[in-house]
Structure formats: structure tokens, C-alpha cells
């Protein structure tokens, strides 16, 4: 039986080929939105094995070999390697359950505690072994909220935010979230239990140049990072968010001269 030690996770997330790494466009999307959602990404055969473990009450990291298999898939390891390096460190995991006909939603929150690192980030994977249509309570996220300094439950007064997004998907959907992304579980209006397996990993190295950096300063990529896709909820603060994003882009690209900031602020102000 697999154990939840730091060594186990590190050993099983060794280097993969470049073809499995995130492209510059995908990485730009992660830096901009704070997450990547891959629908039906995990093979159905494995989803069914994981679901069987979950339904049998043994779906946690230390209980299920099948859940380990998910994170040993080259396509999953490639994404984790792109975000965290070759030796991600196990932080914690949980099997989040929303029972049948549970009609209250979780309050908005950001996990853990205010992060003191200026650029480095943990990744929270959220994996659904079964279909998660709206009525089953897919996790709700706020795209573009990941760079805001809030303290765990300090956003709990909020209820609805324009362009909030549920992680709706087919079985095998998996999302990779920046640790700062605002999120909450949603009500379940069905008679089936909703399971979401979460695994939080820390970087084992500086997160510079880990993805497939080909074309990281191409116009198309610059448009993603340097745009204002979340203007509709960030309002007056959209420009400040753009500057923070440009700084994070420099960090993950490993290039402190690339500048996607609004009006070239980073260059103009020698930031």
C-alpha cells in the first residue's frame, strides 16, 4: 500500500519528456487565470478504479493505489513538472465529499494561510473520478483571483461574483490550481455522493523555466499574459493585477527582462 510520505511523491514524479510539458500558451493561461482545467483527461478505466475505492471508503492518498496511478501518468507528471519541477514535495491531500442532496454551498476561501513567498507557488490538483455536471456540485472558482492577498476565510462574506466558474466536466477531469485561487465546494442536488480528490504539492526547486518555454515571448503568448481577461470583476484593479502577472511571468520564464506589463510599466519604472 502506498504511503503519504514526501519521498514517495518525489520519487514518483521524476522527469518526463518535453512532449508532456506545458506549452508557453498553456503556462501563460495558468499564470493569467490561476488554473488549468483538463476535461476527461484521466483514462476512464482508471477513473472507475479510483471511484470504486472512493465509494468503498478508501479513496484517500494513503489508502488507494489507484489514486497514485493517476499522478504517475506521464501527462499528469508533465504538467506537475512544468509547474513545480522534477521533485514536487507532498504537502497534504484530502478526499472532499459532498453528500447527496446537500444544498448548502461551502463559503468562499483561499487555502492554507497568507503566503509569504513573492512568486513561488504550490499547486492544488483537483481530480474528479466521476462526471461532475452543475447539479452535482463541482468546485466553484474565481478565475484570476490567485494573486490577491487574502487570509483563508476572510473572503467568506462574498456569495456571488461575476464570471465565477464551476469546474464542470466529465469523469477524469483534473484541475491544477495556483494555491491562491479563491474557491469553494458547491451544493449537490443529486442522490449521488460527489467526490473530489485534492493533492497539494510544493515546488522542490525554483520554478524558473520548467515548462516548454519555446515561444514564451511570442505575440500570441504576450496577448494572454498581458491582456485584461478578468477586467469584468477586477474593475479598477485590473491594471494592478496585470503588473503582478507580468512579474510572475518573468519568474516562471526565468527571464527577468521579458515585459508583458501594461504600457511596459516594469521597464519604464525599472521594476
Amino acid at each position: 500500500m502506498a504511503s503519504a510520505t514526501l519521498e514517495t511523491v518525489s520519487a514518483k514524479t521524476s522527469s518526463v519528456g518535453k512532449e508532456h510539458l506545458l506549452t508557453a500558451r498553456q503556462m501563460a493561461q495558468f499564470v493569467t487565470d490561476g488554473y488549468l482545467l483538463l476535461d476527461a483527461f484521466i483514462p476512464q478505466e482508471l477513473n472507475e478504479k479510483v471511484y470504486a475505492d472512493q465509494a468503498a471508503g478508501k479513496g484517500r492518498w494513503h489508502e488507494s493505489d489507484s489514486i497514485h496511478e493517476v499522478f504517475e501518468l506521464p501527462q499528469v507528471k508533465g504538467i506537475l513538472q512544468s509547474l513545480l519541477g522534477e521533485k514536487p514535495i507532498y504537502d497534504h491531500s484530502a478526499l472532499h465529499v459532498v453528500g447527496p442532496q446537500q444544498h448548502t454551498g461551502q463559503i468562499w476561501h483561499a487555502d492554507s494561510i497568507i503566503d509569504a513567498r513573492p512568486f513561488a507557488f504550490d499547486v492544488q490538483t483537483m481530480y474528479f473520478s466521476h462526471d461532475v455536471p452543475k447539479e452535482t456540485g463541482p468546485t466553484l472558482i474565481l478565475p484570476g483571483s490567485h494573486l490577491r492577498l487574502v487570509s483563508n476565510l476572510s473572503i467568506a462574506r462574498y456569495k456571488n461574483i461575476v464570471v465565477q466558474k464551476q469546474l464542470i466536466g466529465k469523469a477524469g477531469s483534473i484541475a491544477f490550481l495556483h494555491h491562491g485561487l479563491w474557491h469553494c465546494a458547491q451544493p449537490n442536488f443529486t442522490d449521488k455522493t460527489r467526490y473530489m480528490f485534492k493533492l497539494r504539492l510544493r515546488p522542490g526547486q525554483e520554478q524558473r523555466g520548467l515548462f516548454n518555454t519555446d515561444g514564451y515571448d511570442d505575440p500570441e503568448v504576450r496577448r494572454i499574459v498581458g491582456g485584461f481577461p478578468h477586467n469584468n470583476w477586477q474593475g479598477d484593479q485590473a491594471r494592478a493585477e496585470n503588473i503582478q502577472r507580468a512579474k510572475l511571468w518573468r519568474y516562471v520564464c526565468g527571464d527577468d527582462s521579458v515585459d508583458t506589463s501594461f504600457e511596459g510599466v516594469l521597464t519604464r519604472m525599472h521594476i
Binding site: H103, T104, G105, Q106, I107, W108, L140, R157, Y158, K159, N160, I161, V162, Q164, Q166, C184, Q186, P187, N232, W233, Q234, G235
Partner: peptide, 21 residues
């Protein structure tokens, strides 16, 4: 850009506005 309603006229146990509803 965001809204929340807390309704003191509803009895305890009745659903208030929920996240994402």
C-alpha cells in the same frame, strides 16, 4: 461585480443566498 444578500426576515434553517447560486 459581486453581491451577497443576508435576509434577517427568513427563519433559521431556511436557505440564505449560497455561494455560486
Amino acid at each position: 461585480i459581486a453581491w451577497a444578500l443576508y435576509d434577517g426576515a427568513k427563519p433559521e434553517g431556511e436557505l440564505q443566498m449560497q455561494t455560486g447560486d
